[in-house]
Amino acid sequence: MNDNEAMNTEEKELLSALKALAREEQGLAARPHVEARLMRAWDDARGTGAGRRPSFLVPVLKIAAAMVVAASAAYWWGGGGAVPPAGPEPGVGPAVMTSWPSSETLAWLDPEPESLQIVHVRVASAALAAQGYALSDPDGDGLVDLEVIVATDGTARGVRVVPASAPIY
């Protein structure tokens, strides 16, 4: 047997061994968590899908914004004359109101003002901008601090922007 023939035989055996190796590995696959992660990424990228969790904050903020606008208008039309308990105008930056909310405002917001609670939340300014609420980000950390007045029925009755140093209730 010359070298060339010997090499051919060896090569055939090698190919056979490689095929056996391929057969051994036939059942190997990535574990299910990889697919789960990918599909979550799909949902996040497309903004839809069964795996997407509903955001509690977005509807709360929308309702709060609507309520604040309505409260401001009603307060002015009703002759109250005081500055309404709204947050700052978009782009102006956080405003600190020393008596927010006032007892009159609380009474106006809910028939049972003592049941209202203030919740301090910190959200990404980009997430708010995506919902149409462009707020300035004075700290430059991409986060905005908000205080939300929440009633016992879970809806927000008022919202304002506060500095990050504001107390957390």
């Binding site: 035989t9 060896e10 055996e13 090698l14 056979s16 061994a17 490689l18 056996a20 190796l21 051994e24």
Partner: peptide, 13 residues
């Protein structure tokens, strides 16, 4: 060639 027959040899391969 003979060394490649067993599963252990697949690991070596």
């Amino acid at each position: 060639a003979a060394a490649l027959s067993a599963s252990q040899e697949s690991r070596r391969l």
